[in-house]
Amino acid sequence: MLELRLVQGSLLKKVLEAIKDLVNDANFDCSATGFSLQAMDSSHVALVALLLRNEGFEHYRCDRNISMGMNLGNMNKMLKCAGNDDIITLKADDGSDTVTFMFESPNQDKIADFEMKLMDIDSEHLGIPEAEYHAIVRMPSAEFARICKDLSSIGDTVVISVTKEGVKFSTKGDIGTANIVCRQNTTVDKPEEATVIEMKEPVSLTFALRYMNSFAKATPLSHTVTISLSSELPVVVEYKIEDMGYVRFYLAPKIEE
């Protein structure tokens, strides 16, 4: 028996909006500690990891570990039927091949349930070891989204370089080049507006902007984004979900031919 009641149902709606274009089908894993997902995009270039911890749910019952295969496009269609203020409850019986999404309006005057068929997904799970990163940049998520969008109108790839001067996002294309430098800036009114750069070593890596723009769809989940870079590792773009967990995107770099 599985029953997860999320008062802030809009969080789940935002999570699906953030990952549905990157991943078509995925297994959602539910255990006593939380609701999670790990999935690669179809070309195995990027990986998404989601964690929603049990304590973030108003009610969390998961009697045994369960993996539920879902088509994210179909799941998104169902979650779009929930209001932004609705409470969302996920329910599944042991051995069932369906999951039920229940939507309750805040004043309980409307209750809807949507039953979705589960699917068998043969997905590969990757072990991601804890890593020391050469540079970690925390910045406003909207700023990062804006930079990725702007650069993608000029070129296909972004070079992210972290030095003592700041973090530089560069691209080049047929029409010209672009460089955007963000300096550390902690003298702001609100902490979420700060740009904070922790650098152990300078690092410079190249990534496909198409994926970065896809990750930026998680912007509504968090005011800030954390970008962790190491010269021999995929970049980690993390959006923290307040009090609950995170959505992390891992992207393999491009190397020179």
């Binding site: 270039v45 990027a46 891992y250």
Partner: peptide, 14 residues
């Protein structure tokens, strides 16, 4: 531009 590496080149299947 450049060769796109796969995420599977970095992390092992569990």
């Amino acid at each position: 531009t450049g060769i796109q590496l796969s995420i599977k080149e970095f992390y092992r299947a569990t």
